[in-house]
Design a protein around this nucleic acid. Structure first.
Ligand code: FES
Ligand code: FES
Lengths: 144, 144
DNA sequence: TAAAAATAGGATAAAATTATCCGAATAATT
DNA sequence: AATTATTCGGATAATTTTATCCTATTTTTA
């Protein structure tokens, strides 16, 4: 469904959010360990998220990644997915036609529409805070 | 959402079904042209579908691909997707955890569940016949 | 000011997906 | 029997995605 990069991006964001509530910055190393991802690859993704202003990165000793505590509840899953995978999952044709167009639909267009709408809705309505709280309360997990 | 291979496989199956209603076999060349796909790559996918008994292939002059006319309405989109992309789209964890497990869910598990269920349902309920008829009646298209 | 602890980012490599080429096999037609 | 029209399948190549390595830069601390 999502690229590996996007999966890592989502998991990393959740972990950063979790720590940001406690005012803690987290290092790349700690993130990669927690979400079980390759360190250098994860670094690229975090840079990407930082460029999109979804997370903040701080260089130097005592540096790391963080998210403004008061922004966490307003960051939507869709922003992360969009920053990394782009919008083709919402907007692209399910059968790869050049554009998804009501007036020139592919054979699965109508059937797909509701699924895609639901996915879009879900991503646009789900925020980082709820996801982070599920980790904190131990009802959800970031690895294996 | 789906791999290119799967997109081609679905479109090819629809085109083959369409012709099979009229008792016509279609050649690889005709298929690739119709669905705007690379010929040799499409050949591999068709072989795959044939091995999964979703389509029949006939070698030699006057050969080509066909689907048993009476089977068309019973072939589900899910069978095609499964043959080519496997079942990870239904069964795999949305965040790439080793397994999607109710008892050890990832943070998006609950949110994803309904989207995935709807996708699964749609794929399992949609058959080749309805898709082919939309092409025949001109309300849907296989290219650009 | 030097050392240490971080991220940034360019260059590369490995793996997976997508795409191409070509000879072998098969079947109908001449 | 030869020719022609096909699919099959192995080898290879191109592209994209995923992953790694190394150096530069920034910031804190001693
Ligand atoms: S045209 Fe294919 S999904 Fe809309
Ligand atoms: S555990 Fe991730 S989707 Fe079920």
């Amino acid at each position: 469904m999502f690229s590996k990069a996007c999966e890592y991006g989502i998991k990393a964001s959740i972990f950063i959010a979790l720590n940001s509530y406690e005012g803690k910055r987290v290092s790349l190393k700690a993130i990669a360990k927690e979400i079980n991802s390759p360190e250098a690859f994860t670094a690229k993704i975090l840079q990407d998220l930082a460029r999109h202003s979804i997370i903040n990165s701080v260089k130097g000793a005592h540096g790391g990644f963080e998210i403004d505590k008061y922004a966490i509840s307003s960051i939507k899953l869709s922003q992360i997915v969009n920053a990394i995978d782009g919008d083709s999952i919402y907007k692209g044709c399910g059968l790869g036609l050049h554009t998804c167009d009501e007036d020139h639909p592919c054979p699965v267009h109508d059937k797909f529409k509701s699924v895609r709408e639901e996915l879009k809705d879900m991503l646009e309505k789900t925020n980082l805070e709820e996801l982070a709280l599920d980790i904190k309360s131990g009802v959800a997990f970031l690895r294996t």
